[in-house]
């Protein structure tokens, strides 16, 4: 039991990060039908920027706030410079653009920062909490709590605010939303800003556990995309569930089956789900215009 609990703690912590990356994918996808492969780079920018601002002498909270702000600026720049001009391009073209953006951001990061690994001090110490014989890092609670806050805040934003409702309307039917007077371009920009912010927050929270470097985003993007697909592309609840599921499946796979094929576990599940439930666990929209 202690063993199972240990794998579980490990899984939900990593899963919470996947979930936040998957949420970023989902928000941008809903606003623009773009799969943003640079999503992992927001996580990296959040982590690396706060590391460097901290070492430049800024207090941690200020460093974090600035790091998130910088990630948001990068997200908006990405939208304005690369996504907006390619409006109406095919899915494949847009995928290549975001992959190009992720290569570019990674390249910039290794010039602006460096090519070393870095870490942040854990927010509330490193003495593990023992629950049922399993050790839980205090920082993991920060990650889980952070993910929860992000999810709740998004839920409130999308259901209770005018802007959030506008974004949902745009996701549902872009043309109708535009006719109803919603500024679709602003919605698109906001979706990039929001995704970047969530990614950066995830990056800051997780850096004390996983460390960070200029190329930390690449694998996160793949896993986050997998999580989003598993949950059903476009569904926010699905993204969170998908992220946690991928994280837990990996940890259980590494613990109980074989650590060699740990990464394979997630992708095998996804292939099976896609073969038997082609729209993911939570379904997505499936309208095709002829």
């Amino acid at each position: 039991m202690a063993e199972f609990l240990q794998f579980f703690f490990s899984g939900i912590t990593v899963g919470a990060v996947y979930a936040m990356v998957a949420l970023g994918f989902t928000i941008i996808y809903n606003a623009s039908e773009v799969i943003n492969f640079a999503q992992g780079e927001f996580v990296m920018i959040g982590g690396m920027t706060s590391v460097f601002l901290l070492s430049a002498g800024l207090p941690l909270p200020l460093a974090i706030a600035l790091a998130v702000a910088i990630a948001v600026a990068v997200g908006i720049a990405l939208n304005v410079l690369a996504i907006e001009p390619a409006r109406g391009a095919s899915v494949v073209t847009l995928i290549i653009i975001t992959i190009g953006a992720s290569i570019l951001l990674r390249g910039l990061a290794q010039i602006v920062f460096d090519r070393q690994f870095h870490t942040l001090p854990a927010f509330s110490g490193e003495t593990p909490i023992t629950i049922g014989g399993a050790a839980l890092q205090p920082q993991a609670l920060w990650v889980l709590g952070g993910a929860l806050v992000v999810v709740l805040a998004l839920g409130w934003f999308f259901t209770r605010t005018l802007m959030g409702k506008a974004m949902r309307a745009t996701a549902h039917n872009r043309l109708a939303a535009q006719l109803a007077g919603i500024n679709v371009r602003f919605v698109l920009m906001l979706s990039f800003a929001l995704s970047a912010a969530i990614g950066a927050v995830a990056g800051v929270l997780v850096t004390p556990i996983t460390l960070t470097s200029y190329d930390a985003g690449a694998m996160l993007a793949l896993k986050g995309f997998a999580a989003a697909i598993l949950g059903g592309m476009g569904s926010a609840a699905g993204a969170v569930a998908g992220g946690l599921l991928v994280g837990i499946a990996e940890a259980m796979g590494a613990g109980y089956i074989s650590s060699d094929y740990k990464d394979a576990v997630a992708f095998v599940i996804i292939l099976l789900v896609l073969f038997f439930l082609p729209r993911g666990l939570f379904g997505g929209k499936s309208v095709e215009r002829v």
Binding site: A89, I103, R106, G107, L108
Partner: peptide, 20 residues
């Protein structure tokens, strides 16, 4: 040298936008 990935990324994006 150091700017290779930046240039590669920028060229990819530019080609996709201007030579769709």
């Amino acid at each position: 040298h150091d700017y290779e990935p930046v240039l590669l990324g920028a060229i990819l994006i530019a080609c996709m936008i201007f030579l769709r």
